[in-house]
Design a protein around this nucleic acid. Structure first.
Length: 194
DNA sequence: GTTGCGATTGCCT
DNA sequence: GGCAATCGCAACT
């Protein structure tokens, strides 16, 4: 392994080894690619410590094992028996759910996988994002700092804050974050819910 | 062994 | 805005 890869890995491990609500906020504006397909992360949610909405709340199970593994590794789970959702693990038991991406590379492959050519809706939701990027449940637990994943650091942006979507427990925590002005969000930040 | 429920999406009215 | 689809997982008997 080269020095550059080691440096990247160490930097990312340090970046993600913090509270999920901090990481989720700072991750907006970064870029994520899977086999060269992806773009700018424009929406995230934090699943933190002592958070009843988190899969890790009741301790480690076979499904959430990756959440108790290494920081900067991915936690991928199946949602509603149909979709996959992508998280990046932070401090032990915490993770950031990636909810929306602004497509920048590999758009043709996203269009094929999603069966739509509406740019703003290729990755405008956790299930859509997972589908567009071609994620596989077998990737659960693998590191986000080596292929097929590639993370590129972003710069600070104006961030929108809101409550998380689709949860029933701990619904009032302001742990949803979005890139201000983005057209690629899963939904707006002013209205609560749909 | 059984049950109930989702960190969702897309189609229908 | 309403709701069906679809099934793995975890809680419970």
């Amino acid at each position: 392994m080269t020095l550059i890869q080691d440096t990247t890995r160490d930097e990312l491990a340090m970046f993600f080894s913090r509270e999920a609500e901090i990481v989720a906020q700072e991750l907006v504006g970064w870029e994520l690619y899977v086999k060269g397909v992806g773009g700018r992360i424009v929406e995230t949610e934090a699943y933190g410590h002592n958070d009843a909405a988190s899969h890790s709340f009741r301790g480690q199970t076979p499904r959430n094992k990756a959440m108790f593994g290494h920081a900067a590794h991915v936690y991928i789970y199946r949602s509603y028996g149909i979709h996959l959702c992508l998280n990046i693990v932070c401090r032990t038991g915490q993770a950031v759910l990636l909810r929306a991406i602004e497509p920048l590379q590999g758009i043709d492959r996203m269009v094929t996988r999603r069966n739509t050519d509406t740019r703003t809706q290729l990755c405008s939701g956790p299930g859509k994002l997972a589908s567009a990027l071609g994620l596989d449940h077998a990737m659960d637990g693998s590191s986000a700092y080596q292929p097929p994943f590639e993370l590129r650091k972003g710069i600070a942006h104006d961030i929108l804050v809101g409550t998380r979507i689709g949860i029933t427990k701990n619904p009032d925590a302001p742990w949803r974050f979005g890139l201000k002005g983005s057209r690629y969000l899963s939904r707006g930040f002013s209205d609560r819910n749909k």
